[in-house]
């Protein structure tokens, strides 16, 4: 019997962990093109979720709301790139770290003022009655998270490998000057990566909200774990974030089951501290340590 419980916890947690993986993937997208990330990514997830909720409450059908929400996220990604990142990168400064944090705070207070401080339910047509698969109960809602995350990551990875534009993105990330000499605009590539990152953040919000509810504070819970995933997996392995994300999600749900829900946040933090202690020179760690 306990093994069934464990399996149940692991499966539910791992599906949830894919959301962390998706947000971490958003970090990877912008890091590849510009060596910068949006530290307000969690707030972007939250604001996009609120906008999507508003659309839903105004009668926009679920399946039409998803692309609209992602479009909003992409637009916000462009806004962040333009206002918080571009100037700092042009001056070769690390001002983008502070700027993106500040933009995140703006999003946070904006959301509090527009939508209030309460957590709100996010309606979805996907049923949450568990179905029985291989001895484990999984809800279609949980499955939709997994399917959504893997589908969008698969789509973007295919785009990067199959299209000339995707190869151009890789060229910019390996050698910006050489890419410019090929007629590839580094600035446009960075804009594209921020738009993609924003769209991905929005989708993460749309997928997770029906399970966790939407509220201004949802950002902080998600972002810490996404950071842990990104630090542990490194900032260039899409496959890595999926694995680490699922692992973190699973340990988290086991911890909260066996140790109590107060311990839910512990595995993410422990993982983060371990990664920084064992691999302090990780690409990501360097950027943070230099500034703080």
């Amino acid at each position: 019997m306990p093994s069934v419980v464990v399996a149940q916890m692991v499966v539910s947690g791992a599906l949830m962990g894919l959301v962390y993986a998706l947000i971490a993937y958003g970090f990877q997208l912008t890091f590849a093109s510009s060596r910068s990330i949006n530290f307000g990514q969690g707030e972007l997830v939250m604001v996009s979720a609120f906008v999507s909720l508003t659309l839903t409450l105004h009668g926009v059908p679920y399946w039409a709301m998803i692309p609209c929400g992602m479009l909003f996220g992409a637009l916000m990604g462009l806004v962040i790139e333009r206002t918080g990142v571009r100037l700092a990168l042009e001056q070769k400064s690390e001002g983008w770290i502070l700027m993106t944090i500040i933009l995140g705070l703006f999003f946070f207070s904006g959301a509090e003022n527009l939508w209030g401080r309460d957590d709100r339910p996010f309606p979805t047509p996907i049923p949450s009655d568990p179905i029985h698969i291989l001895g484990v109960d999984v809800t279609p809602l949980e499955l939709s998270v997994g399917v959504g995350v893997l589908a969008i990551m698969g789509l973007i990875e295919t785009f990067k490998r199959r299209t000339l534009l995707g190869k151009a993105l890789e060229a910019v990330s390996t050698d910006r000057d050489a890419a410019e000499l090929m007629g590839i605009s580094a600035r446009k590539s960075i804009m594209l990566s921020y738009a993609l990152s924003g769209a991905v953040a929005a989708l993460a919000g749309i997928l997770v909200s029906p399970i966790t509810t939407v509220g201004p504070t949802m950002a902080s819970a998600l972002i810490l774990k996404a950071f842990s995933v990104a630090v542990v997996a490194g900032l260039d392995s899409g496959f890595g974030v999926v694995l680490v994300g699922m692992f973190l999600g699973a340990t988290e749900s086991l911890a909260s089951f066996y140790l109590g829900s107060g311990w839910r946040e512990a595995p993410g933090l422990i993982l983060l501290i371990l990664a920084l202690a064992v691999r302090p020179t990780g690409i990501f760690g360097k950027a943070v340590i230099r500034k703080v």
Partner: peptide, 13 residues
């Protein structure tokens, strides 16, 4: 080589 011709090729497929 294909990226060398980036400016005059279709960028998607």
């Amino acid at each position: 080589l294909l990226l060398g011709a980036y400016g005059r090729l279709p960028i998607l497929l």
